[in-house]
Amino acid sequence: MSDYLDGNVAAGPLSELFAVDLTAAIAQCNGCGHTTVFAESRVYADAPGLVARCVGCDSVLLRIVTTPNDTYLDLRGLTYLRVPTT
């Protein structure tokens, strides 16, 4: 039994913050350098927030916590998100 989902689960909360679909972006892990489309990351959602982790090294790539007043977005685990220029 796996306790995580794929990165597409983050599409909803991310679309509240960004106009582009970030799950289709290329993401580089700041821990191990693993580079892949964000949708392939492992998302743990049965938690006080949403946590996306690297498939290469399990480090945290992104965290989203939604409180009644604010949304906290932590991107420290990403070296970059690469989004095609339109």
């Binding site: 306790d3 995580y4 743990y44 049965d46 938690a47 399990d58």
Partner: peptide, 8 residues
């Protein structure tokens, strides 16, 4: 309930 923010 089991809550987890990462692999066990």
């Amino acid at each position: 309930p089991v809550l987890s923010a990462g692999p066990t």
